[in-house]
Amino acid sequence: MLNKIKNFFKKFKDKKLFKQGIKKLDDGYYQEAAEILAELKDSQQVDREMLYFNLAGALIGQDKLAEGEKYLNKAIEIEAEHDFLWATLAEVNILQKKWEAAKKAINKALELEPGKKIYESKKEVICGSEELKENYLKYFKLLKKSIEEQKRENWQKSVGLLRDAVDHYDQTGYVYNQIGAIYNNNLGNKELAAQFFKKAIEREPDNEVFIRNLKQVLKNS
């Protein structure tokens, strides 16, 4: 009975810690997220596949790419049938300019989720010209800079960086959704927010998050 009680509290504590790590990761506090999630590496109380996946994200956010790749591979060892793991592995290989490894990973993601537009776009980068590859890498660096400005609450500067990012690469809806979110949540301009959410949906018509964001802003405008 005593062991059951201990296990219950251990599970509660670890799950709470895991949620804290995810929140830090979502807010762009990559070092803090990595420190929290690393505490759970030996825990049997959390989903290890998702632990490794999110720890990888926190490390990649700090440019610890090889270490992030290691944890992605650990997640894939547990569950190789999740397309998002392979797509993220492709991404980290792009950032390391490991183009052949990136191609293998994105092909696996497409095998698991055929025709997914965002994966097709990623494959175009991987198999594209040197100019396209370099533009994508510039795009990614600008995204990271914009997150740093958001943490400082420099909203206009963050929007400027995001606009620069889509000058280099605009085949996904992510950046447009981010700009829309800033206009909606931080700059108080719902009209502009709606415009950018629509641009995000144009690039990813099936993205439920983008669709929900647009509906919400139109409802409240």
Rank of each mutant, 00 (worst) to 15 (best):
Y30I: 04
N207H: 07
N213L: 09
E124I: 15
N186S: 14
I126C: 05
A181C: 03
I5E: 05
K116H: 04
L214N: 04
K151L: 06
D83T: 12
G188C: 03
L40E: 06
D167M: 11
L25F: 01
K116I: 03
F140M: 09
H168M: 07
A194Y: 00
Y119L: 09
Q156H: 14
Y174Q: 14
R163E: 15
G173F: 08
E113R: 11
A200T: 06
L112F: 14
S129K: 13
Q62L: 14
L17C: 12
K157T: 14
N54I: 07
E39Q: 07
A165T: 03
D47Y: 07
S129R: 04
E120G: 00
W86Q: 03
L142M: 13
N220K: 14
Y52R: 08
P114C: 05
G61Y: 10
Y183E: 02
E191Y: 06
E204V: 10
K199Q: 05
Q44W: 05
R163K: 11
E39A: 02
L112S: 05
E134H: 08
Q216L: 15
H168C: 08
G57K: 04
L161D: 09
K133P: 01
K198T: 13
K141S: 06
L85W: 05
E131I: 12
E131T: 14
N207G: 05
A80E: 11
K24V: 02
E191T: 10
I22V: 10
L142S: 02
K219M: 03
G180D: 07
N7D: 06
D83C: 06
R48E: 15
D206I: 09
K122I: 13
I106W: 08
D83H: 15
M50L: 13
I201N: 03
E111S: 04
K19D: 07
G180T: 07
C127A: 14
L25S: 03
Y176L: 02
F53K: 07
A80H: 08
Y176V: 03
A90I: 15
Y136K: 08
W86A: 00
N7A: 13
I106M: 07
Y183T: 00
K122C: 09
G57L: 05
I5D: 00
G188M: 02
L85P: 02
Q195R: 11
D83G: 02
L137Y: 05
Y52M: 14
R212G: 01
R48M: 10
W99C: 00
R203I: 04
L40S: 04
S146G: 05
E149V: 10
N185A: 09
N189E: 10
K10A: 11
E124F: 11
L214F: 12
N185Y: 13
V209C: 10
L85R: 09
V92R: 06
N186I: 12
M1D: 08
H82V: 15
Q44F: 11
K4S: 13
R152T: 06
W155L: 02
I147L: 11
S129G: 01
A58V: 04
Y169H: 06
V46F: 11
E100Y: 07
F197S: 01
I201D: 02
A193K: 01
Y183K: 00
K123R: 15
I60Y: 08
L142V: 07
N93F: 10
